[in-house]
Design a protein around this nucleic acid. Structure first.
Lengths: 327, 327
DNA sequence: CTGTTAGCGCGTTCAC
DNA sequence: GTGAACGCGCTAACAG
């Protein structure tokens, strides 16, 4: 910039103001400065700028693992929206480990981002406090429980999703409705399971513990779960699954045994991932609207970075049943 | 840091050297400084550090779209490896638009990253030149053509993948082997199509233009392609697809018409995406080893950032056929 | 409308 | 072993 100023025969101050427009500059000078800028191929150093202005125009996106089914979708929507507002996005993965998450929060103190979005896991209270202490605005998206927290949270109304699922399944069958949940303690597992029990009660359907399985969130585990459900010898007319991968596994196993879906047994998933439309039969699932969650999260963050203090908003995004062939 | 120095009763210089260890500091002083650091919860400002040292310890990851099938896998592996080496990762999406890509390269001049990884598209020569001029080391991963470029490139040996595919299909059937490619000009479409023709020739199989389709890289397009292949009335015993989504669509359509896979028609995909193991029949495909591509790319970049000049390496990663039920 | 000065938070001389 | 002073590249405060 020093060179630009010299080349244009003005002070650095003037160059700055040509760049930022924060002060009127005569057309002639402006012209000469722009000329020098293009001639020297000058680009302002954002790092120095950030240091001086105490704003880096960058936000950290912290999530368990970018490979998880919905993570890229979230990252995409959040990223686009943030970039629209002139923010750069840095990405951090916790690997689902709270300790790693905490250390990332610690590192955030060194890399002065203007804000942070935590997605796909619940922030620990100590981390939240640390961020607060360092005045780093943040939001916590995709939290998989119902706890109310004293910081901004955007979550999906999982109970409502389960309600819609069970409504459809109850229509489909008068028989028992089994449930295959995620592993206890895993994100979303507990809340979805409780929602299942609650909604079953509301529908006046009995819950039989023997028809409830808890397995890993993947496809093989789904097959396995179907086997053990069938192994009980108990009849059932539907299976609600906590996750699409599980549901696809369940379908595969059932079909392998000659059980017709949805006529003999109806099956539902949850999350509405891409393969749902490609498997046979296509899978009825629940759209979790990652786009809206990301949008709400970013909007909240932008507001917080804009100076609005202490808004501990609790946004609840409504899911939507996507009805396909399996139920 | 000023505060830490005062609290410990030393100069800022000493604090720096306690932090960086670039100069011996007496145990007693070190003790007092660490004490002050923890007491004041001090974290060095990486931004200021970067400005001073002219190294930001961050690299830019530029890709078309994080939602694309293999992008998150690449981002994951590259990210982990870069973080292991103390680098932060910023993410940028081109949306497949060369202009956007060029503007990102321009922005990189302002945001002084230590290096950049471009993945999933071929960098333009002008962008490469701009990076060179600004002394920003970079690598270009996942380039989908065979052109030799004067900058570091890591690519998959797509011809070899197609060779493996056709070898299997040729074993399966003595009949015609149809091909469903991606849209002309799309990433990987041309190279895979040419590889198909070349390998067919090597196998002594005739190529019938009427049994070649070019469609979008998605599932619906695959169904459509299968319909038009069947519509020709020409018999064929196998279909090689340029992409798994297309292949899954082809399978769906064939099965819908009562055609047995692989007995009547064998089908193969390409990329080995997750759903391959979940569809019926499971899809034979080609593993593209994004982990290895990412690793090679990062290693190349680390070497370049380490000061090794002008290494215009051309790494070729070998794909591997994953044999499943569809062929 | 423009320039001079000071300083963002550090690391690196060069001195002791 | 330690400290004082300067500067990385830029912007804000204070002049005129």
């Amino acid at each position: 910039m020093y060179d630009v100023a010299r080349e244009a025969g003005v002070s650095q101050t003037t160059v700055t103001h040509v760049l930022t427009g924060k002060r009127p500059v005569s057309a002639a000078t402006k012209e000469r400065v722009w000329d020098a800028i293009t001639r020297l191929d000058f680009h302002p150093n954002e790092m120095a700028r950030a240091l001086r202005r105490q704003r880096s125009h960058s936000v950290a996106l912290v999530l368990p693992n970018i490979v998880h089914a919905l993570a890229p979708v979230f990252a995409r929507h959040a990223g686009v929206r943030l970039r629209e507002h002139g923010f750069q996005v840095t990405i951090h993965e916790t690997d689902g480990d709270p300790e790693t998450a905490a250390s990332i929060v610690g590192a955030l103190a060194s890399w002065p981002v203007d804000g942070a979005i935590f997605s796909g896991f619940a922030l620990g209270p100590d981390s939240a406090e640390a961020l607060h202490r360092r005045q780093i605005p943040f939001v916590n998206c995709g939290v998989d429980d119902e706890e109310v927290r004293p910081w901004p949270v955007v979550r999906l109304d999982q109970g409502e999703g389960m309600r819609q699922v069970l409504e459809v399944l109850a229509e489909r069958t008068a028989g028992a409705i089994a449930y295959v949940g995620g592993p206890a303690g895993a994100p979303g597992a507990d809340i979805r399971r409780r929602a299942y029990e609650r909604e079953m009660a509301r529908l006046g359907r009995p819950v039989d513990e023997r028809l409830i399985a808890s397995v890993a969130y993947d496809w093989r585990a789904g097959r396995q779960a179907a086997r053990s459900l069938l192994g009980t010898g108990l009849p059932f007319g539907a299976v609600a699954c906590a996750n699409d991968l599980i549901a696809i596994g369940v379908c595969a196993e059932l079909r392998g045994r000659g059980i017709a879906i949805p006529d003999d047994v109806a099956v539902t998933g949850f999350d509405n991932i891409e393969p749902d439309a490609m498997v046979e039969p296509t899978l009825t699932s629940v759209e979790t609207h990652m786009d809206r969650i990301a949008q709400e999260g970013v909007d909240l963050l932008l507001a917080a970075m804009g100076g609005q203090e202490d808004l501990a908003a609790n946004v609840l995004v409504q899911p939507q049943l996507v009805r396909r062939a399996s139920a």
